[in-house]
Design a protein around this nucleic acid. Structure first.
Length: 211
DNA sequence: CCCGAGCTTGGAGGGATCTA
DNA sequence: TAGATCCCTCCAAGCTCGGG
């Protein structure tokens, strides 16, 4: 579990790695120099305050850093061999909007929902929570799917597919053609689907699932 | 010691989002 | 729809550090 302190430590580490102070990093990213000040990390009543997703996206762009690299900084010094996985949305058997409009494949909820995961072999990893029973008996409500955009997806693999219109679904990759893809439905109640390459934003193989 | 640059703190208030 | 909440920008003031 990534704590409030871990997130801010990650930002501090990122700034230091690029030879800047937190305020310098904020300025470089087009943010107000006080955005990451230590005095802004807790409200006046002591409640923790979190950086926004937009601020994190800006510092990642300014430093050419990936989300997994950023939160990898937060793991520095830890003994446990766990990696922090950002939970990017919900998974359904059919195509439904489950990622915020306008977000990319590495969007993080605010405050970020992070899942600890004991393996780094497939980094970077992202997580999706299964909603409903539409993927029974394969996956149940509450299961968490770990997907790897770096793992090659081949015919027969279970994958998460994100369309350019921001819809996401869990499918079985049936065939890769020159102009698109053929998918098996996970749920027998859903029909198979054929998609053009231009309609697919990304395909990520499911490398693990908690059940 | 003086000065300027960079950084930090703390307050005020705006805009977006959430909730009853 | 109004109030609450949160994160942000803007601003003023003070601190630290290096150069002259």
């Amino acid at each position: 579990m990534l704590a409030h302190n871990d997130v801010w430590n990650a930002i501090d580490e990122l700034a230091a790695k690029h030879g800047m102070s937190p305020s310098g990093l904020a300025r470089r990213s087009g943010l107000d120099p006080t955005t990451f000040n230590k005095s802004k990390r807790f409200a006046s009543d002591g409640r923790p305050r979190w950086p926004s997703t937009e601020s994190i996206a800006k510092i990642l762009k300014a430093t050419n850093t990936s989300i997994s690299q950023l939160f990898g900084f937060a793991d520095t010094g830890r003994q446990a061999p766990h990696v922090s996985i950002p939970l990017i949305g919900e998974a359904h058997a059919g195509f439904e909007s489950s990622l915020p409009a306008g977000t990319d494949s590495v969007a993080v909820p605010s405050p970020p929902r992070i899942i600890s995961f004991p393996d780094r072999r497939h980094e970077p990893l992202y997580a999706l929570s299964v909603v409903g029973d539409s993927m029974q008996p394969l996956y149940r409500d509450g299961d968490v799917l770990f997907i790897s955009p770096n793992a090659a997806a081949n015919a027969g693999d279970r994958v998460v597919v994100k369309l350019t219109n921001n819809e996401v679904a869990v499918k079985v990759l049936k065939e890769i053609r020159d102009d698109g893809y053929e998918f098996h439905a996970v749920n027998p109640d859903h029909s198979d689907v054929s998609l053009r390459t231009s309609d697919v934003d990304w395909i990520a193989r499911i490398v693990y699932a908690t059940q």
